[in-house]
């Protein structure tokens, strides 16, 4: 395992991401809620660039106390979406939303001074 320089923490704006090539691996580095998360950039579906798509909130069906459907809204979970086919992943865990048993490989982030590194 080696530490690969991503850059200054401030280089990745809150809510954004960058992709690091670390040897033969591509890793997506996300900055969300003041924390950094790092995942394999290879989708578990057909191998698409999983970290390079839309970042969005989860969609929720609103069901009232009587079990009646009252429309849809956005929830408080953040997902990133593989742009090839729309596979969605939980930004905080790397879990695939359609089947949470499936998870993208997660990498550790190390902060040294103003710089952040991904361990891969």
């Amino acid at each position: 395992m080696a530490e690969w320089l991503v850059g200054k923490a401030s280089d990745i704006k809150e809510g954004d991401r960058k992709v690091v090539t670390a040897g033969k691996r591509e890793i997506g580095i996300f900055h969300k809620g003041g924390a950094f998360y790092a995942y394999s950039n290879t989708c578990l579906h057909q191998g698409g660039p999983a970290c390079e798509g839309m970042i969005t909130q989860n969609v929720v069906d609103v069901i009232d106390k009587d079990g009646l459907y009252q429309g849809q809204t956005y929830g408080d979970e953040t997902h990133f979406v593989c742009p090839w086919h729309g596979y969605e992943y939980d930004l905080k865990t790397g879990e695939c939303i359609g089947d949470r048993k499936l998870k993208l490989r997660k990498y550790d982030i190390v902060k040294r001074g103003e710089d952040i590194y991904v361990v891969a």
């Binding site: 690969w4 320089l5 991503v6 954004d16 991401r17 960058k18 992709v19 690091v20 090539t21 390079e52």
Partner: peptide, 11 residues
């Protein structure tokens, strides 16, 4: 060591 490349994502 292979150089690491860091790139932004612009949809």
């Amino acid at each position: 060591m292979p150089r690491n490349d860091v790139r932004p994502v612009d949809l």
